[in-house]
Design a protein around this nucleic acid. Structure first.
Lengths: 237, 237
DNA sequence: CCTCACACGTGAGTC
DNA sequence: TGACTCACGTGTGAG
């Protein structure tokens, strides 16, 4: 029997959930309502059908969520949520950049329009990814970055724990930016510590993660920091 | 017994962001694989623990989803997803309008005459949009979470050094806000350290200052943090 | 065989 | 009280 309404039957955006199993009716009328245990089972069956209903509603919502997120990698229940989270964060990022751009366009009104290269901002995340990569590459050479002399170490130390250590030179708001970068990643942070001493800034974060996530984590962090640098460049505060 | 991770936080608006829940996991009992019932229970317990793990992961994801959505009405599992859907759609709408606006601004930039003097250039569209952007942007990634359970200690320790220690509960972006508060004061910071552990946040700052400046410094810091909270509050619709 | 993801029924807890 | 949500353990089917 199909226990699963999400994986196979609803591969397309067709939203007909409908109950592929009609068992609920049979279950409710199955027991005798006159006997005392019948009353019990009646209450129980109500609970059952209510719970079933709740579960169905939750699934409907879940895959309604999937339908508003553009690129869903896997049909996995957890992956759907994860993709939604990533998508929202990307939208947030875009929003940030766009807002900066608008601010510039508004208050700037200067003849210099070099930064806004008339590239449409909203094409979607498919291109935004490309853009991000480009930005990362670009800011790799840019020396005007707010975060300088960056050194990033990501190592697995056992017990599902990855230790991330960052050192960079301390400038104004560097601390803030680093914190922002890490907060934006929604990691499972066990403990974090950041300390500034003699012009340097050291940050150590214990993250709960598998060993296999290490490389991905590192790339994530690099990207987040690069995005910060890029944001800084485009805003040119 | 604790059967649930949400109900407690559901009662009060107090939200534990980081995984206050993910502590227990070390239970993995090994049975002898040679004995038949041992194999049985081993398989069963494996299944159990796997399922439990899956459920936990799903909850974490769900809850991470909640953390990236600004205004969550109810802590309900289904409501979280619903709010996320609404929020994504809202962002989509906004994106669309902003794109139109940027196009308009760019095209108008060439034939500009009186720009940006006021909002007249962008009739009413920008106003609503702008408000929304500010709102979203101001709250950073997500919800408005003021700095709670604040404890502030300022003491002179000799050698022209004042030690400031702050403890508060860790919410989303609390770290960022605290750093912002301190950066805004332009203190002569000798060394600073901030660490997050088990839902709490501890910050220690060594400031070069005279003993007489102590009280003033304390008031300054209190004011800065209060200003952060106020700024957060003023976003309310 | 075993892992993964799921739906299910049930008891416990809340308002 | 009953109408809700939730976590749990279990059975099942796909890969």
């Amino acid at each position: 029997m199909e226990n699963d309404l999400v994986s196979k039957s609803q591969l397309k955006p067709n939203l007909e959930i409908s109950n592929s199993w009609g068992l609920d009716e049979a279950l409710s009328g199955y027991y005798d309502s006159s006997s005392p245990d019948g009353a019990q089972s009646s209450a129980a069956s109500k609970n059952i059908v209510a719970e079933r209903d709740r579960r169905k509603k939750l699934n409907e919502r879940l895959f309604a969520l999937r339908s508003v997120v553009p690129n869903i990698s896997k049909m996995d229940k957890a992956s759907i949520i994860k993709d939604a989270i990533d998508y929202i964060q990307e939208l947030h990022d875009q929003e940030r950049r766009i807002q900066a751009e608008i601010l510039e366009l508004e208050s700037g009104k200067l003849s210099n329009n070099a930064i806004c290269d008339s590239e449409e901002e909203i094409p979607a995340l498919l291109r935004s990814k490309k853009k991000k990569i480009d930005q990362t590459f670009d800011s790799g050479e840019a020396r005007a970055s707010p975060i300088e002399d960056l050194e990033l170490g990501v190592s697995y130390v056992g017990e599902n724990t990855v230790v991330v250590s960052v050192t960079c030179s301390k400038r104004r708001d560097t601390m803030v930016k680093l914190c922002e970068a890490f907060e934006s990643l929604n990691l499972k942070i066990i403990t974090a510590n950041i300390t500034a001493v003699s012009g340097k800034l050291l940050k150590t974060v214990f993250v709960q993660a598998e060993e296999e996530e290490r490389d991905h984590l590192k790339i994530q962090i690099e990207t987040a920091i690069a995005a910060l640098n890029d944001r800084e460049n485009s805003v040119s505060l």
